[in-house]
Nucleic acid binder design. Structure first.
Lengths: 364, 364
DNA sequence: AAAAATTTAGCAACAGCGTTGCGTAATAGG
DNA sequence: CCTATTACGCAACGCTGTTGCTAAATTTTT
């Protein structure tokens, strides 16, 4: 949720989101935990906790006896109090996942999409899939919305698919609007990699620092989490990481430039030299670190996950071996914890994040 | 100014900063202008304007007669109500500038620093320079502080110079602390390129989008402005843009990798082929656009400014020629409007920004 | 010349937020 | 049973932006 001016309702939402962030990060928590983490006064935390409890988002979960004194009430998030559905729209498949308030993936389903599918095809597939998932235990009333992660270019702010690369029928499609009408649910549209990094950030909790999610699938993309929020760029087009030049004299890429990371990597992988391909990717990752100084790098994508250890080793080594990196310049490299679900799950979490995440104040 | 929790004083500061942003962006403004830009109620704007007027930050500047009805009071920023001094600490020189609240540079002075200068050398030079500048018209009482832009690596949050590259006496120097004590002024320490981009953002006003400042001096660095704030990365080390590999089989760089943008560019420039050097830089800039999707690219740095038109033309052409860039994917390329003063001026504006810019809420 | 319409400005009361002061509840130890 | 300690929350408070309404200043209409 973004807005320009700050009023008291912003205070409420913001501080409430802080408490929710603590609850999502820690399995259980008590009032003093929140006080320590946020700097709010105990009294303020009590008010927020009372509100969240009344809304069913958190609940008491026993007491902790601190030795001497009155026992502290322990609270926990109620994971099944809210759900969101996430969709990963790829060129040939639709993946749907059901995610709860804690960020856990409950169901995952993949269905094929016809070649050159139209918006109508997609809406029908979404409708069927959502009805099937929401039917489980009558979740409909606890469903906060649908998140869609899709290949770009698209316009996140207006929910518009500008020109999905490689899909004939997807030029200037107001997907959010027509999907909301067709499905009768709030819909959030975003680029696939941006959805993916949101999943990692949401699951890692409030203390997650600047990070990138590197996706190696049909192409190579990067999703970025900077200063506590997804970075989308000026036109929702950030993340075309595969089209950065790493070899000035390299082969011609589809994008018209020579020696893009994507084409160089692809050639190596095609030749069967996965280790070399992984090292090429690692060069690109270190480029990102030099530019953006990230605390986390997460690896995902179908092509990468076919050789997870090879890629993980190559990137970890390249990051560690970088001669200029001092001990304080630490970056954690890991495989995405969500595997093939990361995009769809992230799309779902973007919906949850809009409701229960830290609100942002939009620039003028 | 950053804080974790949001309270009513945050509301005040935030909305006040919005009004100041309007005042800085437009030469003159009235109540209705602010209402339109921010969404605040007229009454709320009146209160803020009254407070700012009482503090001397803005003042009435006539009336506008809207045809029918009571004339609207026109306000303007009072540029000389507040000043800050900015310092650009380079390997051999210290540049000091005096900047007013509107972001205008009033005085600029360069003094040499001894080879392998020590913290004491710097403090003395700063002391002399500041006394000289603050003496002009007795600005001392209106001086909000000193900003220092310096080569890294450094720790912005703690005001610590970790290991200024190429300076022997600069390992783990708590520069902010000792400078504040020695100069009796609030001090803000940041990386040079980060200070530079702050200058551009501050001068362009509130509507400035995601942007990068490309500095070509002894090395190549990049300062980033993302989502309305400077991007520093996880360890204040973002911006080592010169050490991104653009030529996998290129020459060995001082950083230990092959074909860094910096060394490839340097070789071309050394050979006298500035046009080629500029094209190499342009490849790096387009890499940034693919990754971050920026609205503005600004060019600066002594080496670049020796051939400004060559570089501007090469980067503009590369950005425009990129085949995948549609018409809606516009990026403005320009030379920095501040020339050689950009780092020092930006360091000063960081101090002003702390007091009168949009406050941020720090992550937990 | 007087009345009406229009636009701007601001006083006063209000709701809602986090904070502060302080009383109460619950426990362990003496 | 008393005391120290810890956790909790009611009530009053100060501050914010908002809302309702009145006043002021100007042009247009009568």
């Amino acid at each position: 949720m973004t807005r320009v001016t700050a009023d008291v309702s912003f205070l409420r939402d913001y501080n409430q989101a802080l408490v929710m962030a603590v609850g999502r990060t820690a399995r259980t928590f008590e009032r003093s935990t929140v006080v320590e983490a946020t700097g709010l006064t105990p009294q303020a935390v009590s008010k927020v906790i009372a509100r969240l409890t009344a809304n069913g988002l958190i609940r008491p979960a026993g007491v902790r006896r601190p030795g001497i004194g009155k026992p502290a009430v322990v609270y926990e998030l109620v994971p099944d109090s809210r759900y969101a559905i996430g969709a990963h729209v790829a060129r040939r498949t639709l993946r749907l996942v059901l995610v709860d308030l804690a960020g856990a993936v409950h169901h995952s389903a993949v269905s094929p999409l016809p070649g050159d599918f139209t918006p109508e095809h997609l809406l029908d597939a979404l409708s069927v899939g959502i009805d099937s998932m929401a039917g489980i235990g009558d979740l409909r009333s606890r469903l906060t919305g649908l998140g869609i992660g899709m290949i770009g270019p698209l316009d996140h702010a207006n929910g518009l698919v500008r020109d999905a690369h490689g899909l004939r029928h997807w030029h200037d499609v107001p997907l959010r609007e027509i999907a909301e009408k067709h499905l009768n649910l709030p819909v959030h549209l975003d680029k696939d990699v941006t959805a993916g990094i949101t999943a990692e950030a949401w699951r890692h909790g409030a203390t997650f620092g600047d990070a990138a999610l590197i996706m190696v699938e049909s192409g190579i993309g990067g999703g970025f989490w900077l200063s506590g929020a997804a970075h989308r760029g000026a036109h929702t087009n950030a993340g075309e990481f595969g089209h950065t030049v790493v070899d000035l004299t390299g082969p011609l890429c589809v994008c018209g430039r020579h020696g893009c990371l994507e084409i160089v990597h692809h050639r190596a992988a095609e030749a069967g030299d996965i280790a070399h391909a992984a090292r090429v990717l690692a060069v690109g990752v270190v480029n990102l670190l030099q530019t953006l100084d990230l605390a986390h790098v997460l690896l995902a994508g179908a092509d990468l996950l076919r050789h997870p250890q090879t890629y993980l080793a190559a990137v970890t080594e390249a990051v560690g071996a970088d001669a200029r990196r001092a001990d304080w310049l630490s970056t954690r490299v890991a495989l995405s914890s969500l595997g093939a679900d990361v995009i769809a799950a992230g799309a779902a979490m973007q919906v949850l994040d809009q409701h229960y995440g830290i609100p942002e104040l939009a620039p003028i």
